[in-house]
């Protein structure tokens, strides 16, 4: 009997393809202690090589024993410090694409590169925030954040510093020792974001992170997320079906079409670097929204 360790519960089912531990050559975030300089200007994106590169990714599922092409030759690249939102109608394969980038789903063909190096399988270089229920309920907020840090074999002192720093960043310092069940939905998501960020991934992936929240909490978290990005300039790829959210948060919106799923167009969001919620009612914002909505509607 071969003891290949194939996980029942894992979509990879036996394919732990390569260990995806591309060395973290630089920290994309401030190290703890450097929190003083809050809003550094990002380096101009054009001069940097691609941080994340999605190359000709296709995914074909078996659907009722018929091949179903969910993604076809998807190309997408993110510069360092870019915040890109992926929008598309439900069923266009945007979440599948994100899962492929995360290494949680194997593509049928194509490659994922992080810092010019191919990655296969999940790894801590690509942190991920899920829609909900992803915090470990048996660990306190601080221990949830510490989980990844322990895996990275950081010293106790480094772990303590990072936990304190990221708890402060997401405004949950007072809840360090609370269990997830004691937190509201919005707080849970902030904790999940802190956990992903504390690992200091090369790229942060977010799968409809505010989709399960009520409208008011959602706006608060959008503002929080944008401020966080203005502060840290982490490279982020986020999936959402909310066009307004995508425009407000990102530097670029990639619009996907369905059947088969592919990137239809990329729209640069030329709004000011610092954003406020009031911008959502400005003319330029509404024009962008109409433009992208039209692209989605007349696919």
């Amino acid at each position: 009997m071969s003891l290949s360790l194939d996980f029942v519960n894992n979509p990879l089912a036996g394919r732990f393809w390569g260990s995806a531990t591309s060395a973290m050559t630089e920290l994309s975030l401030h190290p703890p202690g450097a929190a003083g300089s809050k809003f550094p200007a990002p380096p101009p994106p054009e001069e940097l090589p691609d941080k994340l590169c999605v190359q000709k990714i296709s995914k074909i599922f078996d659907y009722q024993s018929q091949p179903l092409t969910v993604l076809q030759d998807v190309d997408l690249s993110l510069k360092s410090n870019e915040f890109v939102c992926l929008v598309g109608a439900s069923g266009c394969g945007k979440s599948t694409l994100l899962n492929i980038v995360a290494g949680l789903t194997a593509p049928t063909s194509g490659r994922i590169l992080v810092d010019q190096e191919e990655v296969t399988g999940p790894g801590s270089d690509r942190g991920m925030v899920f829609q909900a229920y992803s915090l470990f309920p048996w660990l306190t907020v601080a221990k949830n954040i510490e989980f990844g840090l322990k895996l990275q074999k950081l010293s106790k002192r480094e772990r303590r510093e990072r936990i304190a720093y990221y708890l402060e960043v997401v405004g949950l310092s007072r809840f360090a020792n609370a269990f997830p069940k004691q937190l509201s939905g919005g707080m849970k998501q902030r904790a999940a974001i802190a956990r992903a960020l504390a690992n200091e991934p090369e790229v942060l992936l977010m799968d409809e992170p505010f989709g399960a929240l009520d409208a008011q909490t959602k706006e608060q978290l959008q503002l929080f997320m944008r401020e966080m990005w203005e502060r840290t300039h982490t490279t982020i790829l986020m999936v959402t079906h909310d066009v307004e959210e995508a425009i407000f948060l990102s530097s670029r919106v990639a619009v996907m079409e369905a059947h088969p799923g592919r990137i239809k167009e990329s729209v640069e969001i030329e709004l000011p670097e610092h954003r406020e919620l009031e911008m959502k009612s400005e003319v330029s914002f509404i024009q962008l929204k109409r433009r992208i909505t039209t692209m989605l509607g007349h696919g």
Binding site: F7, V8, N9, T21, Q131, Y133, L135, L151, R195, A196
Partner: peptide, 21 residues
């Protein structure tokens, strides 16, 4: 074990767990 939400396992994967862990 089967009823453990997939999000929990996927979150662990993206944090860099190995199988024994």
């Amino acid at each position: 074990v089967r009823k453990i939400p997939n999000e929990i396992l996927n979150a662990a994967y993206t944090l860099g767990v190995s199988r024994p862990i």
